[in-house]
């Protein structure tokens, strides 16, 4: 009985792991100089970072500019932005979704802190 249950559980795990819920989505292009966020239902996504004064939120006036770090959405719901040309250094960044919600990059395992928020890090060597 225990052996049947064990085999059943293993088979279920294999079947579940093989279904599309656990198979990673393919990137459209392999580029190190782009940031991606897959969020098809969002009305707007911006990248706020050390390189753009967090969208103006740390500058005089403290209003986040709605066009700062604006990402482009493709037909599959993938938001992208080109970050080529940034000077070498360490930058913290986060995605600002729908003009009110901060989220870190879910596919970047390196994190830091900005204020009380957990954000992501990117390092550019040159």
């Amino acid at each position: 009985m225990i052996r049947i249950m064990t085999i059943t559980i293993i088979l279920l795990l294999i079947l579940t792991a093989g279904c599309s819920l656990f198979v990673p989505m393919q990137k459209p292009v392999e580029q190190d100089n782009r940031l991606f966020l897959w969020l098809p239902g969002a009305s707007s996504v911006q990248v706020l970072s050390d390189w753009n004064d967090w969208g103006g939120s740390v500058a005089a006036g403290s209003i986040i500019n709605p066009l700062s770090g604006r990402m482009e959405k493709d037909e599959n719901g993938l938001w992208t932005i080109d970050i080529e040309g940034l000077p070498g250094g360490v930058y913290r960044y986060a995605f600002y979704v729908n003009g009110y919600k901060w989220i870190r990059d879910p596919v970047n395992p390196e994190t830091a802190v900005f204020g009380s928020r957990t954000v992501s890090i990117i390092m550019i060597s040159n």
Partner: peptide, 16 residues
């Protein structure tokens, strides 16, 4: 530790 994934089925996972 952290892990993240976007799956073909349209599911995003995020763990810290």
């Amino acid at each position: 530790a952290s892990a993240g994934m976007i799956s073909e089925g349209g599911v995003s996972w995020d763990m810290i």
